[in-house]
């Protein structure tokens, strides 16, 4: 499963398409939620869950399982789509996104849905959880790895840098942070609202290994994840350049699609485009 070859790349690309379709349908039904930042992370999520992570949906609480934390918790739809495709819960759950009593909360709730490792949504907190999980692994030597997905806008939270400092200080080579660098946040372009560049230099200064890649190129994502395993004595960040709304032309690189769900006609158009480009 862990080899980088045409078969594994094709499989992950196939899963990424399924995840994107699922995101569009799910958000269309719910009528609210975060579309743009879910689509930008679809390839990364497909790589993690269908190539990288050591997890078993039939044994979701196994002690030695790898942990994934969606620090950019508002991208919950991409997590739900991925977990459903992986088999953590039935696909039918997806039609209940954001509905009363649903396990699919607006932001992930670990106590309501199998496969969710951390209750996130308030930005910056997930990366701290990840540092705590990585520290626990170092104590117990359970052998698992921890992965956190952050937004680039999220890097504006001061707490992120407290966590990044701690991970560097404690030499957490079992921790991988991935920055979904789609360059947009609610109020516009990240660099205009509150610049976070140079991202790579900031992480380097905190003693992290930095890998910069195209976040929609599955082969590059795999290679970066593979490289991260070989880095010892310090954590790795993968700065993944992405496009907000990736896969649906009318959503791509538009801040307006941050927290808006597609209407019925937009759902049809988006699904048609996803099929056509595949």
């Amino acid at each position: 499963m862990r080899e980088i070859n045409n078969d594994s790349i094709a499989l992950v690309n196939e899963k990424a398409l399924i995840i994107r379709e699922s995101i569009i349908k799910m958000l269309g039904e719910s009528g609210s939620g975060h579309t743009g930042g879910s689509l930008s992370a679809a390839d990364i999520m497909a790589c993690l869950y269908f190539w990288e992570l050591n997890i078993d949906p039939k044994d979701p609480k196994a002690a030695g399982r790898d942990r994934f934390v969606l620090s950019k918790g508002h991208a919950a739809p991409v997590l739900y789509a991925t977990l459903a495709e992986k088999g953590f819960f039935p696909d039918e759950y997806l039609s209940r996104l954001r509905k009363l009593g649903s396990p699919l909360q607006g932001h992930p709730d670990m106590n309501k849905l199998s496969g969710v490792e951390a209750s996130t949504g308030s930005l910056g907190q997930g990366i701290s959880w990840s540092v705590g999980m990585a520290l626990a692994e170092k104590m117990d030597k359970t052998g698992y790895r921890v992965y956190a997905l952050l937004g680039d806008g999220e890097l504006q939270e001061g707490m992120v840098w407290e966590a990044v400092m701690a991970a560097g200080h404690y030499h957490l080579d079992n921790l991988v942070a991935i920055v979904d660098n789609n360059s947009l946040q609610i109020d516009g372009r990240v660099e205009k609202v509150m610049g976070v560049q140079p991202i790579a230099d900031k992480f380097k200064a905190f003693n992290w290994e930095v890998l910069s890649i195209d976040g929609h190129n599955v082969e590059q994502i795999m290679a970066a994840l593979e490289k991260a395993r070989s880095i010892k004595n310090r954590p790795t960040v993968i700065v993944a350049k992405t496009l907000k709304g990736k896969g649906c032309s009318f959503m791509e690189d538009k801040a307006e699609w941050h927290g808006v769900a597609p209407k019925k006609d937009e759902v049809e158009r988006a699904l048609a485009e996803l099929h056509a480009t595949h």
């Binding site: 907190q125 959880w129 990840s130 999980m133 407290e162 701690a166």
Partner: peptide
């Protein structure tokens, strides 16, 4: 803030 976040991660890990 990070202390409390790390505490959460440690507790989530048992």
């Amino acid at each position: 803030q990070n202390m409390i976040g790390m505490a959460a991660g440690l507790a989530a890990a048992g």
